[in-house]
């Protein structure tokens, strides 16, 4: 990405988040795909960035529930103990 012939690499970087989120317009997507077909370093950066975001999302499940005792203490602290019905979990 440091060679002078790779002047597109830097501009690609600015659109990378939108690209991996699927929020980039079709024309810019084509530009990226054309570039990474020819630039191995950028192909790796795009692939591994997408993979990074994928594993962040995948590792986010199952989501931590609020522990019952934390909920109990929260309701009491807020003077809501009268509404402390069983949670819907």
């Amino acid at each position: 990405m440091t060679e002078s012939s790779h002047s597109n690499c830097k501009s690609l970087l600015g659109t990378l988040s939108d690209y991996v989120d699927g929020e980039l317009g079709a024309e810019l997507c084509r530009e990226i795909e054309k570039h990474i077909a020819e630039c191995e370093d950028c192909r790796i950066v795009v692939d591994t960035t997408r993979r990074t975001v994928d594993i962040v999302h995948a590792s986010n499940y199952p989501k931590t529930d609020l522990p019952d005792e934390v909920r109990d203490r929260l309701f009491k602290r807020l003077n809501l103990a009268a509404y402390l019905k069983p949670s819907s979990k």
């Binding site: 990405m1 440091t2 830097k10 191995e40 370093d41 790796i44 950066v45 692939d47 591994t48 993979r51």
Partner: peptide
Amino acid sequence: NMLPTQFVDWGA
């Protein structure tokens, strides 16, 4: 400050 420096192909 954001330019990548690591080009390990671990995506696969």
